[in-house]
Write a protein that binds this DNA or RNA. Structure first.
Lengths: 260, 260
DNA sequence: AAGTGGTCTAGACCACAGA
DNA sequence: CTGTGGTCTAGACCACTTA
């Protein structure tokens, strides 16, 4: 039957065949528990890049789960770009060090996370007739009243960005004190608004004299520009922003997954 | 039992309750057929923004499918940001006009799609020792040989961008003629390379005199910069690019989905 | 030929929202 | 309380890859 031409079955390259277990008394879904364990194994190196995960049916049997549940766990990691499936081959960990995809975060939180001591100076917090662009993106009649917030964002006391936001009226109360203490997205989440997605356009242009004065850059200095419309879970636009950043101090980093 | 206080059950707001059907003899997966029909119904307005999709079990019965299959179809649309599910409520179409997420496309294809008559001038196509940055991102030893391609991208005869790419040696043959006829990504896909994801950093800076000469901009003009590392399905870096774009002619547009 | 993931079924029970 | 989506099971057959 078998011949010696075949190489012996090589066990998983990792010494310990990976400790996996699920807690059925936990309220956390089983597929989610498994996905978390696999993800942390990838992060800590317990699952080496390129290594094959055992086949789904065997894995399901070992854990006492059904195959669909195991598939759901693996699929969530594939969606995150951490693993790749190939029919007839198996499921393997991708080779690259994958950075987590950028969350929809505020500049304030980005600066906080980078240890940059962010601060905000509110230049304007008022209600005004909507411009054509703001009205179109927020889905309100042109000229109807919207909240307009204009802020200067500082890090270590140095200006970083000038942020102009338009919001629907009555979405949430925005006190100037709150706006100086934290970021807009944090306030919105705190008010029970679920942020869901955003459409962004990033470009560049030269600073006007006025913009240069605000940002401590010479006139004509390169600025990064971003226009962003943010939607809640129901797809309603909850914020339209038009921002400029000092190019010398800031860049955008993000990850694209190819749709398959 | 029932009282007149309740409003009558309102039928689906759309006049025709949506024509859905699947072809079991087709090789296209059933869940995919359903997802496509729902997506096109959303695009054409057959499923109005905000409208509720009938519940999953009823929908499955109507189509002669099992509930998991129907769920898989709906889930794929939720992942695309086209629908939202709420427990106890139902599944509804998001309100906003959702643009398709940006694919990992080449500038060449972007320009083609915009009817911009793209052209490429190859300034360099050679093998050279890897710089520290290129070596680190491509995962090859510093100083080992990599392919370096430098191109000027034109639209309607006007320069748009200056593109510098580094590729692992022996990944694919790159003739200057091919590079002038199409985009790099198209060549890579044609060579059987599956592009999977990319990590991008977008910033801005002022043009040097040399860059200004290449792009027909004055020295000091604002430029958009992008550095991009592209990975294949196994997570290996297949390309590292460092590009500059005329800010007066180009901006990046993309969509962020909040992870839940 | 053997092994893998891809798809699909027909049920089940639970948690949560809304009337 | 009723209806919804969220999770889960224990199978099944198929298509593809590899040897």
């Amino acid at each position: 039957m078998a011949t010696c031409r075949y190489a012996p079955i090589v066990p998983s390259p990792d010494p310990a065949p990976l400790r996996l277990s699920v807690d059925r008394s936990s309220p956390v879904p089983l597929y989610f528990q498994l996905a978390q364990q696999l993800e942390s194994a990838i992060e800590t190196g317990g699952l080496a890049p390129g290594s094959l995960l055992g086949n789904e049916i065997e894995l399901a049997g070992r854990l006492g789960l059904s195959r669909p549940t195991v598939r759901q766990a693996i699929q969530s990691l594939v969606d995150k770009g951490l693993m790749v499936r190939r029919r007839g081959v198996g499921t393997q960990v991708v080779h690259s060090q994958v950075k987590r995809p950028l969350e929809l975060s505020s500049l304030y939180d980005d600066l906080l996370a980078a240890g940059q001591r962010p601060a905000t100076r509110v230049l304007r917090n008022s209600v005004a007739p909507a411009s054509a662009q703001a009205a179109a993106t927020l889905g309100v009649p042109e000229g109807s009243e919207v909240v307009v917030v204009e802020r200067l964002r500082l890090a270590h006391g140095e200006p970083m960005a000038h942020l102009t936001n338009h919001l629907p009226p009555d979405l949430l109360p925005l006190s100037t004190a709150d706006l100086e203490a934290t970021g807009l997205y944090r306030l919105m989440r705190g008010a029970g608004i679920t942020l869901h997605s955003a459409q962004q356009t990033v470009g560049a242009r030269a600073a006007t004299a006025e913009e240069g004065r605000l940002l401590a850059e010479p006139e004509g200095a390169p600025l990064l520009t971003m226009q962003r419309t943010t939607y809640d879970a129901k797809g309603r636009a909850v914020e339209f922003g038009s921002h400029i950043y000092r190019a010398s101090r800031y860049a955008f980093e993000f990850r694209l997954l190819v749709r398959t």
